[in-house]
Design a protein around this nucleic acid. Structure first.
Lengths: 337, 337
DNA sequence: ATGAAAGCGCTAACAG
DNA sequence: CTGTTAGCGCTTTCAT
């Protein structure tokens, strides 16, 4: 199918040396001294023949693949995921590693694509991005000493290697800023249960407490995170009630739909109600008003996670037991004072 | 580093057969008949030992990599790119191919990562997604018979293998709908030069002509596509003028910023001005009003492109010379009549 | 300083 | 129906 390509043997012949020498030269093998003119001859020959090493063959010999598998739960077209991937990429490129996307994640980890890939030498390690790890999966990975890292806003209980985040300080800052403008009546709209959500909700409660503000239960608006229903649920919660001075929205979508609600009903933002969104998207600065947001350090999460994975791949389990914790940031825009 | 793993030789020993038989069974090789009990013995042994083929070794033997390289110009965190990637993925998964992201695209194609990967047997083919191909790059690819496909809204001149799109009918339909509501005065906001842009602008002109409407040059608003400047430029163009009844916006960002302009200035959409956006994003249905959009068939572009690539990889250059042309669609939402 | 040769794990003639 | 065997292209010990 693919026509025969030039191999290191060809280069050796062309340069009048042995195949071993070609390998020594091209890999700059530090354990072996090569006469400069020999070296040059090899390099010239390689260039002349337009030689490229066959990574597959090399990797086979070296018993590694020089790529890492990326696994996600999120829709791929999800901004946080992709942004974290950009951070990962930055770290990988440096070391000449490549990214393999792993899709099929079966119900049993044993037949997840990424496990097959790992055992098939297609990837050397695994990065879980924005994916909640099941207890048993973590156990399986660690039992088999598979290099992996979880990159996720939320802590993954029991996962040995992870990058997680803390948003409490950023939310505290956001609410402090509101308070400085005389706003004390800050509600919360979103989900109140579940892992990810409860991290957000509890950050809100933490921030209120730190700011010595009361959480009023009549200003807590439970909304399920289902794209098609969010707006209706918001209407159900907010129609005809007395609104608080500010609302913190659980995530990007809820922030958008809440703004939609305000715009639709002629409620001025932030004059009547301030709006703050938890989560990151590039569209928050394209609306009217632009939406203030507490945002995760996505790029750095990717970068740091990938670096951690390299440590594990290089030195094995046992290094760096501590999770990396990165801080969220408050990005004030027009929707809040 | 990685502990020795179980090979097909081990399975052979365990099952009391030869390595070849193991290969025959596990690959379901149709050219060779295996006694059912032998087959079963092999399968059992493999399971017992938790055997996984070593793809690297297999690929080396087969002289292929079972992965394709994805190259893009766009920021990865770009919705159209990722959506197309999802289509690609759907096609790849079926054939057990995997995706390798190629990042470094040097100025000279010879040292682009994807070329190195190809010549290094790391990928079997290349898909360019939303990336404008240079003349010379196309020439290089075709001279070397490298399987590639361009997936792009716009035609890539001279690229033999491509998926491109046609938006004229969809825009015509959108404008026809406006006209049916008595709107005849339709402006255009965006860029008027450049490859991508002129496709859009000319689709608008085509649609106006088809609908027997006049393009009024006073309702053509040139805006440069620079995120940080768009809004200011829009203000510069629209402040204090008499607006048309409808505006077609060049792309997603301009659509958003134009809506921002309207909302900010209390101009009702669509009562005062209808808005139509060319381009796709999931956020168009989260604003108030939601934004009508003419959208590219991104998922299918990815899917079809990937299928085309498989044809080329399977049968070589010479198949399917004709570009695949896919139609855009009009998605009417609240921002237009 | 360089070469000969072994072998990574797999597949596919070919032989039986 | 199954086994023997010869590589795929590379790296690396061990000789020289």
């Amino acid at each position: 199918m693919k026509d025969r390509r030039v191999s290191s043997k060809d280069v050796a012949r062309e340069a009048g040396v042995s195949q071993a020498t070609v390998s020594y030269v091209l890999n700059n093998n530090p354990n072996v001294k090569i006469r400069p003119e020999t070296r040059q001859a090899v390099i010239d020959a390689a260039r002349r023949l337009n030689y490229h090493v066959d990574f597959i063959a090399r990797n086979m010999r070296l018993r590694k693949s020089a790529s890492v598998g990326i696994v996600t739960d999120a829709d791929m077209s999800n901004f946080p995921f992709v942004r974290a991937l950009e951070g990962i990429k930055a770290s990988l490129v440096e070391r000449n590693y490549s990214v393999v996307m792993c899709f099929g994640t079966g119900s049993d980890i044993q037949d997840a694509e990424y496990i097959k890939y790992y055992f098939s030498n297609l990837i050397d390690g695994i990065i879980f991005v924005m994916r909640d790890l099941k207890q048993e999966d973590v156990k399986y990975l660690e039992k088999n000493q598979i290099p992996y890292v979880s990159i996720n806003g939320n802590a993954q209980p029991n996962a040995r290697y992870q990058v997680k985040t803390d948003m409490r300080q950023a939310v505290t800052l956001a609410i402090a800023q509101l308070k400085a403008k005389g706003i004390t009546n800050v509600g919360y709209l979103g989900q109140f249960a579940g892992n990810e959500k409860s991290m957000r909700f509890s950050a809100y409660r933490y921030a209120m407490r730190e700011n010595k503000l009361r959480v009023a239960s009549r200003h807590l608006y439970p909304i399920n995170d289902n794209e098609n229903l969010i707006f209706d649920e918001i209407c159900g919660q907010l129609d005809g009630i007395e609104l608080p001075q500010a609302i913190v929205c659980d995530n990007v979508n809820m922030g958008f739909y809440t703004l939609r609600y305000m715009n639709k009903n002629g409620i001025r933002v932030p004059e009547d109600v301030s709006l703050i969104q938890l989560g990151t998207t590039e569209f928050s600065r394209r609306t009217y008003p632009t939406i203030s947001a507490v945002e995760a350090p996505l790029y750095n999460m990717g970068l740091r996670g990938s670096e951690l994975l390299f440590d594990i791949m290089d030195y094995g389990y046992g290094v760096h037991g501590d999770p990396i914790v990165l801080q969220w940031q408050y990005n004030q825009r027009e929707s809040s004072w």
